[in-house]
Design a protein around this nucleic acid. Structure first.
Lengths: 117, 117
DNA sequence: TTGATTAGTTCCGAAGTTCCGAACTAAGGA
DNA sequence: TCCTTAGTTCGGAACTTCGGAACTAATCAA
């Protein structure tokens, strides 16, 4: 297993962030890591609504988030600890993550309204 | 040629916007339509830096932007008029477009700095 | 040690998406 | 009517994503 690559803050590209978060499952994963403060094992995130994301897909979603510069991953014993790089990304692209995550949150709310939840 | 589909404002999804703008060429096209106020023919946007985008690719980029709800297209005689739907998108997802386009603008500036332009 | 267990990665084929040239359509002249 | 301009659709090649099977790496118990 090769060591994990994390881009330097100045190498983070807006298109990589948009691409990473344009998949709603990755957006959910990122939202949970972001709101949980800093640490969560990958496997804790495999249940997505009513279906389970296979390990291999989860692993590649984490890779996309990591290489976009959105999260930092570190091996701790047998499991992986993931923390968001929100503060760094915020300093480079002010308001970007808040706007994106806010848009997702409001579209979920709007949907819940329409389906009467 | 089938009629052009434009999503209603309440059907616009954040993932579609992020996906549409995660391609830097589409982001440039959108930035130009957005800053040009409202109207531009598709072909006016085919020169992208030093290379030319083929018509067929341009057409599908416009389709992605249109179906994401970012632009409104209308045939006027032989050409197409495109205007941004910024105001509508802004009312649904406040701050989103400004943050995304701001991120692109600042990453281009940062790159220009590094390459000494 | 060694063997079992847990957590994640890599490989690879199938399915899906994007790219772009060629052929097409649609509107507006000459 | 035919020509030109502007854009769309088709279809095959190239690329990406998905997910099961096999793998690696750390930990623990015997």
């Amino acid at each position: 297993m090769r060591p994990l690559f994390h881009p330097a803050i100045e190498d983070i590209q807006p298109q990589a962030i948009l691409h990473a978060l344009s998949d709603p499952r990755r957006a959910v994963i990122f939202a949970r890591i972001r709101s949980a403060g800093c640490v969560e094992a990958c496997s804790a995130l495999s249940a997505m609504g009513d279906r389970i994301i296979p390990k291999s897909s989860l692993s590649s979603h984490f890779k996309v988030l990591r290489e976009a510069g959105l999260i930092h991953c570190e091996r701790h014993g047998v499991e992986m600890r993931n923390r968001s790089r929100c503060a760094e990304v915020e300093s480079r692209f002010p308001g970007l993550l808040a706007a994106i995550m806010g848009a997702y949150a409001s579209s979920i709310d709007a949907n819940a309204c329409r389906t009467g939840e």
